[in-house]
Design a protein around this nucleic acid. Structure first.
Lengths: 185, 185
DNA sequence: CCTCTTTATGCAAAATGTTGCATACAGCGA
DNA sequence: TCGCTGTATGCAACATTTTGCATAAAGAGG
């Protein structure tokens, strides 16, 4: 429902091609809203048909042509209105938590490994967030208002990541103690 | 992909009907994995066809008949294997964060309200988590191993909720200061 | 020259999830 | 008796997302 609005949001400042959008999604907004390139290409065409985006083909040297999309006035208006409309949270679904409901003496070792991997992955991600924060949001107070909103989203990513790490540590501790108790294998 | 496994997980200790499962999903596992009753009914039939669940009709007094589902041995085995397989995180998608990318002097008031509502909703939820923790997990050390896994999932819910509240407070502060600066309306 | 990677876009099928509706029976309160 | 709520199950249509495949041109490295 709101993939369209996430895409338009990504186009507020710069025009982009589907390919560039897919990469930007991986790096910024996509940290809060994942989308594959197939989804993005499809949605771009729909939005262009609706008149919310304009498209123009751009020839490039040494690379295939690309199609640049940009927000139209109508698109900007639609986006502005959308902010006031009902919003919904799509709760995350995590296999790992369901797996924990199945914890047993047999699989405890495996689950410790999986949690360890999650921890590692989250560390990487926090490192990326931190680079972004230092690079673009070192002094949030002096940023234009819109960028402060982006900063708040980044803060959510950072806080959630730190919380996740704390949980991993707690879980690894508990599981290590339990495995110890029952005799390590 | 793993809705089936979430359902089987919910049936580890007790047999349940689709209706009861839908309610259990709202209260326990569903806090980490949402599913509507339509999805649940469909999945139950598929799982029964696969031989992972058995079904038996139960007549009731004063209520419509129901169909009770229980894990078969094959189901338990499939679940046990699944724990070792690749797992994936489905990142949450939150309109609110995308909206924040569109922060403006015009909509700042609205976004403050929305964040306030999120805060309120999360408080309610934390209250529920806390009741569960006190009721069933006051002393996690003495629980059987499987229940300790469930406890860890609950801890994730609690930590994530507390982090969310902290973020709401931070965001509300920042937005209040900014709105003040630009002249309150 | 051949293969691999990067840039760039797309179709089609399958799986998943949402929305709206339908049915049926019991008990409760007005 | 009428409407409401709760229990209980389901279909059908639609929207969303994932998966697998396909194409094509340029540059890099062996």
């Amino acid at each position: 429902m709101a993939l369209s609005h996430a895409i338009m949001t990504a186009l507020i400042e710069d025009d982009m091609s589907g390919y560039e959008l897919a990469k930007a999604f991986d790096a910024s907004l996509g940290l809060f809203w994942h989308a594959s390139h197939q989804q993005i290409y499809q949605e771009l065409r729909k939005l262009a048909d609706k008149g919310w985006l304009n498209r123009r083909e751009v020839a490039q040297r040494g690379k295939p042509d690309k199609i640049l999309y940009g927000l139209t006035l109508a698109g900007r208006e639609a986006l502005g209105e959308w902010v006031y409309r009902e919003s919904r949270v799509q709760e995350s679904k995590d296999d790992l938590l369901v797996k924990l409901y199945n914890l047993s003496a047999e699989n405890i070792g495996h689950l410790r490994v999986e949690i360890g991997e999650r921890r590692e992955a989250m560390m990487q991600r926090l490192y990326l967030y931190e680079r972004i924060r230092r690079g673009h949001y070192a002094r949030p107070e002096v940023l234009p208002l819109r960028r402060q909103g982006v900063f708040l989203a980044l803060r959510m990513g950072i806080l959630a990541g730190e919380q996740y790490l704390a949980w991993c540590d707690e879980a690894l501790d508990l599981l290590a103690r339990e495995q110890e108790k029952r005799g390590p294998r």
